[in-house]
């Protein structure tokens, strides 16, 4: 069962951009309420979509480089990345079904 991986600026390229599997990256911070709301959903998605999708998290308090590169100015921001390319961006928390729909669409567009 896969779990969410925590990625820092130095690891981002290797673990996200060069990943074989599609990646959902969540830019978050500990003091952000909406981020806390999506956190358990991301944990769930990481295990339910194990082997199909990597769920990664970047703490923007400690790692700002990629957040700046992607012009992240509001958190949570979730990027759906396939082969190093951002396919979709979701800003703000959403419901479990809403997030799953986005993940399913993203995975479908990858096939």
């Amino acid at each position: 069962m896969n779990s969410v991986i925590h990625v820092n600026d130095g690891q981002f390229e290797e673990m996200v951009l060069k990943a074989e599997l599609p990646v959902l990256v969540d830019f978050w911070a500990p003091w952000c309420g909406p981020c806390r709301m999506v956190a358990p959903l991301l944990d769930k998605i990481a295990s339910e979509y194990s082997g199909k999708l990597i769920v990664a998290k970047v703490n923007t308090d400690e790692n700002s480089q990629w957040a700046v590169n992607y012009r992240v100015q509001g958190i949570p921001t979730m990027l759906f990345i396939s082969k190093g390319e951002v396919v979709k961006t979701q800003v703000g928390a959403l419901s479990e079904s809403g997030l799953k729909n986005l993940v399913d669409e993203f995975l479908a567009s990858n096939n």
């Binding site: 003091w31 952000c32 309420g33 308090d61 012009r71 100015q73 509001g74 958190i75």
Partner: peptide, 14 residues
């Protein structure tokens, strides 16, 4: 939204 537009200062002020 998310590129300068926000509804939460506590989240995004930093």
């Amino acid at each position: 939204l998310g590129h300068g537009v926000s509804y939460c200062a506590t989240c995004d002020a930093a």
